[in-house]
């Protein structure tokens, strides 16, 4: 996993080269920081074909200080791109919800771009299991 030094640890840890390339395509050589962007996904997917995903970003969402976009990637999907959400101050709050496909157990990664050009990154692991059994 060469050339991932642009990503802070642990975000760079064990990321697929295709995912790193997809992220670099969007943010260039800039380095994101950890924090502010939050991913909410179930720890274990009930159905890998439709996994609920919520992204939120801490932001006042004013004209002077808001989130411009959040890019979401699935590290071990056939192609890592999942979605880009473009935000505006008219939203009042920085959040978006959708449902995604995950072929296997993997990390989902979110990169947020702020109006001042700062970048934030976070990741969340989702387990995709064969299931069965229970108490």
């Amino acid at each position: 996993l060469v050339g991932l030094s642009l990503l802070p640890k642990p975000a760079a840890a064990q990321m697929e080269p295709a995912t790193a390339a997809a992220i670099r395509k969007i943010i260039g050589e800039r380095t994101p920081e950890e924090g502010r962007v939050q991913l909410r996904l179930p720890p274990i997917a009930e159905n890998g074909n439709t996994v609920p995903l919520t992204v939120t970003v801490e932001s006042p969402m004013t004209a002077a200080d808001h989130v411009k976009a959040v890019h979401v990637f699935a590290d071990k999907n056939p192609t890592p791109d999942v979605a880009t959400f473009r935000f505006s101050p008219a939203m009042g709050r920085a959040q978006a919800d959708t449902r995604i496909r995950l072929g296997q157990t993997q990390d989902v990664i979110a990169v947020a771009e702020m109006s001042d050009g700062k970048l934030y990154i976070s990741r969340a692991e989702v387990k995709v299991t064969i299931g069965g059994c229970g108490g």
């Binding site: 999942v82 505006s88 008219a90 939203m91 959708t98």
Partner: peptide, 13 residues
């Protein structure tokens, strides 16, 4: 006025 937009990829359900 723009509020919100989204680019969807094949990983969207």
């Amino acid at each position: 006025q723009p509020v919100f937009s989204m680019d969807l990829h094949p990983a969207i359900s």
